[in-house]
């Protein structure tokens, strides 16, 4: 850990595992949304910018999600920098949070955006079922990895001396 509690003569900084986890999750979700935009929309051109079967509510939710993602990305990095500056970062928790965010967004996108709101599909002109399974299983794996890392980070913190 790079941020052990300081020596007694220095004003001690308190490590904040909960906040580290939350900031990691915020960055993870925003990064996954950005990856989706860059890889599948811009590079592969699999997703469509606008799908004519999209209902109005889908357009609305898509716009909100997209805008929130950009703000979350910026806010996440500044919150992260703030944790580091205050020596309050718990790296294991931040990492766990990152995976939780990545997986949660991937699953949300795969189930709510693609299937329930039918914003767009993963790919057009092909049978989309295997793509949907791959997409959602990948999200689930990331989410489970995040949960495992969270449990492990909690155990690690538990074995450390109190006061952190």
């Amino acid at each position: 850990m790079s941020s052990e509690p300081a020596t007694p003569d220095r004003t001690a900084d308190r490590v904040e595992p909960g906040r580290s986890l939350a900031v990691g999750a915020l960055i993870g979700a925003a990064v996954m949304a950005a990856v989706d935009e860059i890889v599948f929309h811009q590079i592969l051109h699999w997703h469509h910018f606008y799908d004519r079967s999209t209902p109005g509510i889908g357009l609305l939710s898509d716009g909100l999600l997209h805008t929130a993602e950009l703000i979350a990305l910026v806010a996440g990095f500044f919150l992260f920098a703030d944790l580091r500056r205050r020596h309050a970062l718990a790296p294991a928790h931040a990492r766990a949070g990152l995976f939780l965010g990545l997986g949660a967004f991937q699953l949300f996108d795969g189930i709510v955006d693609h299937k329930l709101l039918r914003l767009h599909q993963i790919r057009y002109g092909v049978d989309v079922t295997p793509y949907d399974w791959a997409w959602n299983i990948a999200g689930l794996v990331l989410l489970l990895a995040g949960i495992a890392l969270t449990v492990r980070a909690g155990r690690l913190a538990g074995t450390r001396p109190a006061g952190s």
Binding site: R52, G63, H66, T67
Partner: peptide, 21 residues
């Protein structure tokens, strides 16, 4: 100010996308 930015960005994105069709 942050919430206002979010709302304005949202309305901008929705209008932009709707102009596509």
């Amino acid at each position: 100010r942050g919430t206002t930015l979010l709302a304005a960005g949202w309305a901008h994105a929705v209008l932009a996308k709707s102009l596509y069709a």
